[in-house]
Design a protein around this nucleic acid. Structure first.
Length: 297
DNA sequence: GCGTCCAGGTCTACC
DNA sequence: GGTAGACCTGGACGC
């Protein structure tokens, strides 16, 4: 079954799919040769489905190896629109970037949309797996989690586990199977709080709280500190945080500092002119070389 | 083969 | 509110 989803003129599928590391974490899979993004989408009571997403002229092409009912097809399209941020209005951001010669490439290439998960819960779990470890260990942790607790689609791939499934898993699962180390109790506690309704992380998407207050709320979750909270804020569409980590500091030194390390204050000063868009401007600046200009379109 | 360092940080106790 | 030290894991590196 094929579904076509129209996109706006300034949307780049390649720049969005490859916007950060999420495309490498199950239940996402990314094939750069052929530029195909795979995603297992949860359909609630029904078995999850694997969806192949490719970019075409002014549209996305979704392929599912089975027929879908009206409601299931609508859920697939809704999740894809959310993940690739098709409904996000970046007009103001592009206007700010186009006013600066060094950042004008961002609108030309349709960059600035950061791939996210269908649920905030999944993004919180993944953000915690990125802290204080190598990327290889992040991949290992997420793979173990999805392969063990996710529901199986018809092709054998698995969906991201629900808060309920994670809450029911014993603490030993997180240490022995997921290899989460000291983070193990954080995942267990997060899943339990979300599953029982005590913590509404999905509500962060539409929260009226000012960003500093929302960030404080995010940091109430064990395992979420400054970096992880800034990452999550960016994923829900608030771009004033810089989410500085060792990778960004190193990249800034290479790209903007002629190889010399800069303090966090200096990095913040550099992007301060972009005000509420500074976090997104920084991320685009740091990832510009991930894709050649001609290849981005 | 073994020890050390460190990676896309955070938590807690202490001051 | 600021800071030091502990914390899991696993790959890279030096010896």
């Amino acid at each position: 079954m094929e579904i076509r989803v129209p996109v706006t003129h300034n949307f780049s599928f390649k720049r969005t799919a490859l916007s950060h590391g999420w495309c490498e974490l199950l239940p996402f899979e990314f094939e750069q040769e052929g530029w195909r993004l795979l995603r297992v989408i949860d359909l609630g009571a029904q078995r999850p489905v694997s969806v192949s997403i490719t970019g075409a002229k002014q549209s996305l092409v979704l392929n599912v190896r089975q027929g879908l009912g009206k409601r299931a097809a609508a859920k697939v399209v809704q999740d894809v629109r959310h993940m690739l941020r098709l409904d996000e209005d970046l007009t103001e951001f592009y206007s700010a970037m186009s006013a600066d010669d060094e950042f004008a490439w961002i609108e030309r290439q349709g960059a600035g949309r950061l791939l996210r998960s269908p649920t905030v819960f999944e993004d919180v779990v993944k953000a915690i797996t990125t802290t204080n470890c190598s990327w290889a260990l992040t991949v290992k942790m997420v793979t173990g989690l999805v392969q063990s607790l996710g529901l199986e689609a018809a092709d054998g791939r698995r969906s991201f586990p629900t808060p309920q499934a994670m809450a029911e898993a014993p603490l030993q699962f997180y240490t022995d199977v997921m290899r989460a180390g000291y983070r193990a109790p954080y995942f267990k506690e997060l899943a339990e709080r979300v599953a029982c309704g005590e913590l509404d992380v999905e509500g962060w998407l539409s929260s009226d709280l000012p960003t500093p207050a929302l960030k404080r709320e995010m940091k109430q979750v064990k395992g979420v500190g400054d970096y992880a909270a800034d990452t999550l804020l960016r994923l829900i569409g608030r771009y004033d945080g810089l989410a500085l980590d060792s990778w960004v500091r190193g990249k800034f030194a290479r790209v903007r500092g002629r190889g010399r390390a800069a303090t966090d204050e200096k990095i913040a000063r550099y992007y301060s002119r972009f005000r509420e868009w500074r976090g997104l401007a920084l991320w685009c600046d740091m990832t510009r070389d991930w894709l050649e200009e001609e290849a981005a379109v």
